[in-house]
Computed example of a mutant assay.
Amino acid sequence: MSLAIALYQPDIAGNTGTILRLGACLGLDVHVIEPAGFDISDRALKRAGMDYLETARLVRHVSWTAFLAWREAETRRLVLFTTQATTGYTAFAYRDDDVLLFGRESAGVPEHVHATADARVRIGMIEGARSLNLAVSAGMAAGEANRQVNGHSATSR
């Protein structure tokens, strides 16, 4: 089992493409929980992911319910990245069965998704800052989780 990234109904193809490239480079599956705010075959997705989309491991879930069924069958821990958490992402102890979950760029995740998470963590920002770019947040999270789980910033393949 290895770390994975999950995107809850992402809005912006470019961010998802960048995260797919990140997943390809770090050896992480990227789960997209639909509906997305764009066509998964969108040109912007391909542009941001470049030639890495061929090696990216994209897993699509048609709904939150379908994602939860997969997660239960795989017995994976769900770690939600949210501005509403109190635990810092670098203070959290990651495991190789973790799925790092990120909400929509426009709205985060609804309360029922918050309630389902096994853990909630936040990336600290200066006062007055609202949020980081989704792809930047996913990169920071994946780097830290991978460092803790694998002892380095990228998995050995």
Rank of each mutant, 00 (worst) to 15 (best):
L53S: 07
V121T: 07
G103N: 05
E127C: 01
A73C: 10
H31A: 07
A36N: 03
H152T: 14
A36I: 01
A129W: 05
A48Q: 09
A6K: 09
A142T: 06
A66R: 09
G49H: 04
R60K: 13
T75V: 13
C25A: 14
S131P: 02
R130D: 01
L132G: 05
G88S: 13
G88A: 10
H114V: 00
T75I: 11
S63L: 04
S131I: 02
R157T: 13
S106A: 13
G14P: 13
M50G: 07
P10E: 11
L100R: 03
A36E: 03
H152I: 04
A44R: 15
W70R: 04
F102H: 06
V79D: 10
V30I: 11
A142P: 00
A138V: 05
G108H: 01
H61M: 10
N133I: 01
V62R: 15
T55R: 15
L26W: 04
V32F: 05
F102R: 09
A141V: 11
A154R: 15
A24I: 08
L58E: 00
R104G: 00
D51S: 14
K46E: 09
I19A: 06
L26I: 10
I33H: 07
T116I: 04
G23I: 02
Q84K: 15
G27F: 04
A85V: 01
F38W: 00
M1T: 12
A119N: 05
G88Q: 12
W70P: 01
Y8M: 07
D11Y: 01
E144N: 07
S63R: 08
G139S: 11
A141W: 07
A93P: 12
L22E: 04
A145Q: 11
R60M: 11
T65N: 12
H61Q: 09
Y8D: 03
V79Y: 00
L68A: 11
A119Y: 07
N15A: 00
T87D: 14
F81G: 04
A107N: 11
R47F: 01
A66Q: 08
L45H: 01
L28W: 12
I33M: 00
I5P: 00
E127F: 00
F81Q: 06
L68S: 11
A129F: 12
N146M: 14
A115G: 11
T90R: 15
D29R: 14
I5T: 05
W70M: 12
L68R: 15
V136Y: 08
E54H: 15
V121H: 02
I40P: 15
I19T: 10
E111R: 13
R71G: 01
A13W: 00
A154M: 14
R77D: 09
S137Y: 04
M50R: 15
L7C: 04
N15K: 08
A142E: 05
D29M: 10
R104Y: 08
L3E: 02
D11I: 03
T90N: 13
D42F: 00
M1E: 14
R57A: 10
A73N: 14
H152D: 15
R147A: 11
L3G: 02
D51R: 09
I33N: 03
W64Y: 12
L68G: 06
H61W: 06
M1F: 13
A145D: 03
A13P: 10
R57Y: 00
R130L: 03
E34W: 06
T75G: 10
V62S: 15
S63D: 05
R120C: 10
A36L: 02
M140Y: 07
A85Y: 07
A138T: 06
I5A: 03
Y52V: 10
V79I: 14
